[in-house]
Nucleic acid binder design. Structure first.
Length: 419
RNA sequence: GCGAGCAUAGCCAAGUGGUCGAAGGCGCCUGUCUGUGGCACAGGAGAUCACGGGUUCGAAUCCCGUUGCUCGCCCCA
């Protein structure tokens, strides 16, 4: 064991894995561009109260998963525990209610939660997320879901399912929760120990219990979509008809509820086909009460978050053909100290005009330097020895064809400049 | 927070009490080829066998503790 290791639940992302991230991030940025979402980067830590007020005091995230600390000035801060609350905070702080609504923003950033790590779950993970704030219209729900669906397909995932539900709003949800509770209270003897606690603390979560008998009960439980008030019902039906119009198939699952308190009306997730507990790759919903909760005027909003580690895992599993990071183009091999100086000078000139060049390990024989070129998969090697230094030339060897020719250094650089 | 499994070089790993001053493979370095890669061959470097304690004449191997990792539950991306 080395003296120091990356902290539990964190990982080093090494060069060979970078291509997956570059791929996913570039697809994310491109889909955001097409839908008119602008990037926002918020701080990695925030006032602890932001998450307590936003996400909800009773949630697991706030209760036991936040990285919370007091800084040297005595402020209570929290490493970003989720993506939506900071964006809403920024919306308020910068007076974005004065922009054309909705304000569309996306982010790619790390998220921190103190959890036991396992497959697809980390203490520091990364999310691509979007938020559309300031418009209650169901077409925005449909747009956000369309963006999610487009994005997951753009990165090459096709064996995935979109699951949707509506959990109502403050007007109709209390009534729904009452009927849910009374249904489960009659089944007291059949539900698991955890669910007995949920009955008091968070009745909605009774629905997504994994225990077999509880699952069966959940199937038969009252459905939130059947208890919606008139406004929520209209909203829900419109979202569904817009999704229909776009041909986006979704499975309505009345057991889909989400763990953050701020959700209202539309909630949705995208799940891959593979079995496994940590399978959800994207999840979101509407949060019409959140901005008010954070001290602003009543402002509707909707968005989603998507875990990049889980996306990368699924991209690899699906065998998606991800383009390789470009390998360096030129390696400069030198023989002897005089040539070494020329090599340093040449590399400097090449880099100055924007061409990639790396100097071979000079302590090695030419043979060893060539082996290095091969290992690095460079396309060409520039060889500098006594002859080249004397003649002011460079030997350009094409590694694919094994052909080489000497040309003057000046001509070589001119060739590079002209492309 | 709860439960289970695992821990031998950078990576994969053999080994289940003495023949281990630890096999093999990948990777790395050198040479065969004194200025030329991929292949082959030869050689080399690299391991407090996670850490601490115990049992034993003897421990990588058995026992206990610690730490770490992995997987599952909870929850979530």
């Amino acid at each position: 064991m080395p003296t120091f290791q990356a902290p539990r639940g964190t990982t080093d992302r090494l060069p060979p894995e970078q291509k997956y991230w570059r791929y996913i991030e570039s697809k994310a940025m491109d889909v955001a561009r097409r839908f008119g979402y602008g990037r926002i980067d918020s701080p990695m830590f925030e006032d602890a109260g932001l998450f307590v007020r936003g996400v909800g005091e009773g949630t697991d995230i706030v209760e036991k998963e936040m990285y919370i600390f007091e800084d040297r000035g005595g402020d209570m801060l929290t490493l970003r525990a989720e993506g939506t609350a900071p964006v809403c905070r920024a919306y308020l702080q910068h007076g974005m209610q004065n922009q054309a609504q909705p304000v569309r923003m996306y982010y790619i950033c790390p998220v921190f939660r103190y959890e036991r790590p396992q497959a697809g779950r980390f203490r520091q993970h990364h999310q691509f997320g979007i938020e559309a704030i300031g418009d209650p219209d169901p077409s925005v729900d449909a747009e956000v879901i369309e963006l999610a669906w487009t994005f997951t397909h753009d990165i090459g995932l096709s064996d995935i399912t979109l699951v949707t539900n509506s959990i109502g709003d403050p007007e109709c949800r209390p009534e729904y929760i009452r009927s849910l509770k009374s249904y489960y209270e009659k089944q007291q003897t059949h539900i698991c120990q955890d669910c007995k606690g949920r009955l008091e603390r968070n009745p909605l979560r009774l629905l997504d219990c994994k225990v077999e008998t509880c699952r069966a009960l959940g199937e038969e439980a009252p459905k939130s979509t059947e208890c919606l008030c008139a406004d929520c019902d209209t909203h829900w039906n419109r979202v569904q008809s817009y999704l229909d119009a776009m041909g986006i198939a979704n499975r309505v699952d009345h057991r889909l509820v989400r763990g953050l308190d701020y959700y209202t009306r539309t909630v949705f997730e995208i799940q891959p086909a593979v079995e496994g507990a940590q399978s959800t790759i994207l999840g979101g919903g509407r949060y019409d009460g959140l901005i008010e909760q954070l001290g602003g005027r009543h402002t509707p909003g909707i968005g989603f978050g998507s875990g990049i580690e889980r996306l990368a895992l699924n991209v690899q599993r699906a065998g998606v053909d991800v383009p390789d990071e470009p390998s360096p183009q030129y390696l400069i091999a030198t023989i002897g100290e005089e040539a070494r100086v020329e090599g340093v000078r040449l590399a400097n000139s090449m880099r100055a005009i924007g061409v990639g060049a790396i100097l071979a390990n000079g302590g090695r024989a030419l043979r060893g330097q060539m082996r290095q070129a091969n290992a690095l998969e460079v396309s060409s090697v520039l060889i500098l020895g006594e002859d080249e230094v004397r003649d002011g030339t460079v030997m350009v060897r094409d590694m694919a064809t094994s052909s080489q020719e000497a040309i003057t250094t000046e001509a070589f650089l001119t060739g590079l400049r002209s492309g």
